[in-house]
């Protein structure tokens, strides 16, 4: 069994053809600036370590970094935060992930796991920090086609956000359905994926992006 934290998980999603935020790994101040320049400021910078699954809680995330000096300072700050959790180069630290700073969009969660009785199941729900509070999610047995994925979305209150809640533009429903369907087919096709969360999975009027993900593979 193998856990994929954010960095390898985003790579895994890209291999599956699922759109992710633009990102890169950096192992030094210079590299952070280099990657950020390629992606374009502002960026988000996050600690990347196999052991650290919940980065926000330990101060491992720096958002809205506007330029090179800020990026260098953020890098040093994140390394300090990691060190207080016992993670450093040589002891589990991979470096930092530099990501495009995504603004706006609506956060959903996509997930899947293997239930002892039902086998592979797939989930769509409200994402972000309120996921566990509202428990607004719907499940299906994998695989599902795009139409069934659409019905999953319609069953949740979060689904209302997609049609353009309170004058907001409608979000790219078709793209969300396609991603749900593709993940469900992958879950059903083999037992490679034991469990995953893509949270947040951000939707815009004309595109969708996985911002963060965790996978447990066989």
């Amino acid at each position: 069994m193998r856990n994929l934290d954010e960095f390898p998980a985003l790579g895994f999603l890209q291999e599956m053809g699922i759109p992710t935020v633009d990102y890169g790994l950096a192992g030094s101040e210079d590299e952070v600036v280099e990657v950020a320049a390629r992606i374009g400021f502002p960026v988000a910078i996050k600690v990347s370590a196999e052991k650290i699954l919940h980065k926000t809680e330990l101060g491992g995330v720096a958002l809205d970094i506007g330029g090179p000096d800020e990026a260098r300072a953020a890098y040093r700050r994140l390394l300090d935060a990691a060190a207080t959790s016992g993670v450093a180069y040589g002891s589990g630290l991979r470096g930092v992930i530099v990501q495009e700073m995504v603004r706006g969009g609506t956060e959903f969660i996509l997930g899947g796991f293997r239930d002892p009785g039902f086998g592979p199941v797939i989930m769509f729900g409200l994402g972000g920090i309120f996921t566990e509070l509202f428990k607004d999610a719907s499940f299906r047995l994998a695989p599902v086609d795009e139409e069934e994925a659409g019905r999953m979305i319609s069953e949740t209150r979060a689904g209302t956000l997609i049609t353009g809640f309170r004058g907001a533009p409608a979000l790219d429903r078709g793209a969300i359905c396609a991603v749900i369907s593709r993940l469900s087919e992958r879950m059903a096709a083999s037992d490679e994926i034991l469990e995953f969360d893509i949270n947040p999975f951000v939707a815009f009027p004309s595109r969708v992006l996985a911002l963060d993900a965790l996978f447990k593979l066989n």
């Binding site: 997930g111 796991f113 566990e132 428990k135 719907s138 499940f139 047995l141 019905r151 469990e195 965790l214």
Partner: peptide
């Protein structure tokens, strides 16, 4: 151990499978 698993704690799997 995921968010997904914790959201599946009730009988929402039966609900989904039935609707499907």
């Amino acid at each position: 151990s995921s968010h997904t698993g914790s959201l599946a704690g009730s009988d929402s799997l039966y609900d989904g499978a039935f609707r499907q």
